[in-house]
Design a protein around this nucleic acid. Sequence first.
DNA 1: ACCTCCTGTGTATACGTATGCACATTATTC
DNA 2: GAATAATGTGCATACGTATACACAGGAGGT
Lengths: 336, 336
Amino acid sequence: MGITSHDVARLAGVSQPTVSRALRGDTRVSAATRAKVREAATALNYVPSEAGRSLSTRSTRRIGVLVTDLTNPFYPHLIAPLHDELERLDNRMMLFTERTEAAVAADRLLDRSIDGVVLATVTLDSTLPAELRRRDLPFVFLNREGGSPTSDAAVVDNRLGGEIAARELVRLGHRHIAGIFGPENTSTGRDRELGFRLALADAEIALRQTHTRHGPFEFETGAKALADLLETTPAPTAVFCGNDVIALGALDTAKRAGVAVPDELTVIGFDDIPMASWAAFELTTVHHDMHEMARAAARLLVDRISGSADSAEPRRVVLEPELVRRGTHAEVTSHR
Amino acid sequence: MGITSHDVARLAGVSQPTVSRALRGDTRVSAATRAKVREAATALNYVPSEAGRSLSTRSTRRIGVLVTDLTNPFYPHLIAPLHDELERLDNRMMLFTERTEAAVAADRLLDRSIDGVVLATVTLDSTLPAELRRRDLPFVFLNREGGSPTSDAAVVDNRLGGEIAARELVRLGHRHIAGIFGPENTSTGRDRELGFRLALADAEIALRQTHTRHGPFEFETGAKALADLLETTPAPTAVFCGNDVIALGALDTAKRAGVAVPDELTVIGFDDIPMASWAAFELTTVHHDMHEMARAAARLLVDRISGSADSAEPRRVVLEPELVRRGTHAEVTSHR
DNA sequence: ACCTCCTGTGTATACGTATGCACATTATTC
DNA sequence: GAATAATGTGCATACGTATACACAGGAGGT
């Protein structure tokens, strides 16, 4: 059935350990033997068994990636570069898309089939980070952070991003401002809202309770929330959305309701996913380098696993956001 | 470090094999012993080693999924239900997003770390299916098929889908018709084009060479191709796109070029991804049940692996497409 | 009381690779 | 030319789990 190193050894006329050494580039093996072994291995189409190797080396070169919802257009743009960087570092990616993140999932992570975990959609109240730490399974936060600050993480300066959005709205003369924020139990949701509120407060602009909504970072959140907000008086002239996907939902509702963007309503998003620049949207948004963030997370984790980040203090990579002005923002023309 | 079944055995005062039997629900183990073992396992937070189990059982309950590009909005909607169905069948998903699909990738698949493969972006000329068959690694085609017809597959009736699109354009009175098709070396690209051409021919409408483009199933393909097509004379009054993502690219160009859809140009897509129904697009498209297709692929593969599809002939699940009329189609009003 | 059968558990071993250690062979040194 | 060092390879074993098989002990039958 499966070709093993013993088969290769027999054909090459050497012992099994010599096969292992020859193929792994052990310098103590002679050139002649190495050639013989390589030849035999090729002839038999030998591929080393991953399970055997893992059992022996106690390392799998496999990384678990936890995401709640793949169909959210945001995550693929995080996962793709993450995958590529992990491959570059000679690790394979194992994707877990769990709605639950419960104890059930934990066993999947703790069966020693992965060397570490990338947490991309953790909530602030999740017990998973603590559990992983307790079991000595290395992990890194990507995009979102957990409650405990003593972990490796690759994130954006979300608070600054919120401030940037707020300052732009102020600059454009908006006074009736609304916010459709992400979940309060995520670091991204919380920090973007915090920065936004602080900068508005600095400009002495109130963010009314009635102009505030929260929800998951999904299209439907923006769609429903804006429908609500359009009913309020005074109607907001601008709305800041917790991320681009929410903003796209808001734009959808605006279009259906016949509200002109940006003439009657300014919309600002967060993330600058590729769709934001499509002609159908031309979304003004807070940009950051998602690819670099994902790659940084991969590097942090692999460093941690290899121990070159030797039980050192946690390392954080924080990216700078910046505003990208496109077509969904405008100065206030008339407001009563 | 890691807790093993030996540790559990010692604590429970039994032998290691008894631990294995007790935890796996072997009926020959007494209730009392089972309880003791369970208790010890819980106390120690024991999680069985995946590598040890795989080595012993020669099965990993892990499925490889091959996709070229995750950031293409189409694939997440295939991968999400695939993941869920695999989990439901007690298998884990291992994602491989390879630009290459070369021999490099093959070793990843052949190291016995997966029990089977879902091929979601195979080309007709790929040698991978033959290689997998040669190594006795079960696989299933999802969405696209390879050249060899003797494999399990879950696909759409793409030819019928192409015919449906063509008939609709004919019905609407279009005579100057264009096509932006997918790659000719994919079954989806080829069959949709074939069906489209056949149905047009039935209506005695010519599809001019100058009104035909091919390219990867990407946004840019549609965007660039439509820019080209708008330069031709007579300009097409309708364009059929190989899939929705291409169609969205075409809509993007139409919008930028000031071409009114559907008044001046009818656009029809394929797949009916969720974005197609967004207000920004309202894309008329050929719908099929992507979720069911993905789930079917998962079931076919798992059946094949478990051997209940005992070396039987290949099984194909073919889904029926149907037209969904939204806002990007219209009758021809004036044409010279 | 003997034999048989069944139930439950332990013993031995397989799965495939990697590595510490011993050892044989050859090269090096004085 | 003998002692020593360097080089290359094999032997034994570990990694953690699952399973074929042996076997002890008790139940049931006559």
